[in-house]
Design a protein around this nucleic acid. Structure first.
Lengths: 141, 141
DNA sequence: AAGAAATTTGCATAACCGGTGCAAATTAGG
DNA sequence: CCTAATTTGCACCGGTTATGCAAATTTCTT
């Protein structure tokens, strides 16, 4: 992806486009599956783990990425959909699929979570639905 | 709860009723919300963290309790419903509710997860749905 | 363009959670 | 009651998340 495009992606979310952040974002868009902090650290040479950690936190605060708990112990991160801006941010209202074969976690944006009827008095603000199984790539014969 | 009742609960799941396990189980049934390893450690005096850890693992293996990832970083545990025995164990197929006010996680067994239609090629084996918001206790005026 | 202010980065360091190996203590079995 | 198996407690390890602080970079102002 063009550097100018990455830069516009950051400024659109009101994130100062520093060299570090451009590198992390470039890595994120190059990966299809959700990535962990360790993944980014390994994928980018000569980077400080703490800086990557804070970069991801900044991205998350500005709703450029969202975090995923897939049960592996390490928090994963994935780019938000384009229409995921503050105010209409739907808090990851899609399924996260963890494949126990390839051990990758992916977002399934086209699979909406059906509306739930919570017991009286309960108010839902966010929800996360993680499904574990075999993904379509690993199901190929 | 009577000690004999606790003991029967353990033996029914084929767990040897040692003193340690009876104490941990007594603590679990006394708590309404899901508890973390640290909670049990703090709730019971003169206990070794590792022993509690392994006790919880044993309980989980024998389907007496199930683990919950509520996004707080620490794994929580809650007693399984009575009909949750091996074979018909439904892998926590109910909603887990995390209240950001009281910071407690509870099971909502009467709120079933609606069936999902996954994209082609994907096979679901387990799933977990965690809802974050305000619980009925913290909604009281 | 230059200098000051604010932000970002990198290093040290630590808290916390989950986990393993091994020897002592406890429980179960004959 | 004595032996074998299980359980418990201590020492210790590793990974992830996190904070404080000084240096470097970026942004703002003149």
């Amino acid at each position: 992806m063009q550097n100018a495009t990455l830069e516009r992606t950051l400024t659109a979310k009101r994130i100062s486009p520093t060299a570090m952040r451009l590198r992390v974002l470039e890595y994120l868009v190059s990966r299809e599956a959700a990535v962990s902090l360790a993944d980014v650290e390994k994928g980018l040479a000569h980077t400080d783990r703490i800086t990557v950690y804070r970069t991801l936190k900044t991205f998350e605060e500005h709703h450029l990425i969202h975090s995923i708990e897939d049960g592996t112990g390490a928090t994963k991160y994935a780019l938000c959909a384009d229409d995921c801006r503050p105010g209409t941010h739907h808090h990851d209202l899609h399924i996260h699929f963890y494949c126990r074969q390839c051990e990758e976690t992916t977002c399934l944006p086209r699979t909406a979570i059906p509306a739930l009827q919570l017991p009286g008095g309960y108010t839902a603000e966010e929800m996360s639905l993680t499904v574990k199984g075999i993904c379509h790539k690993c199901s190929q014969p």
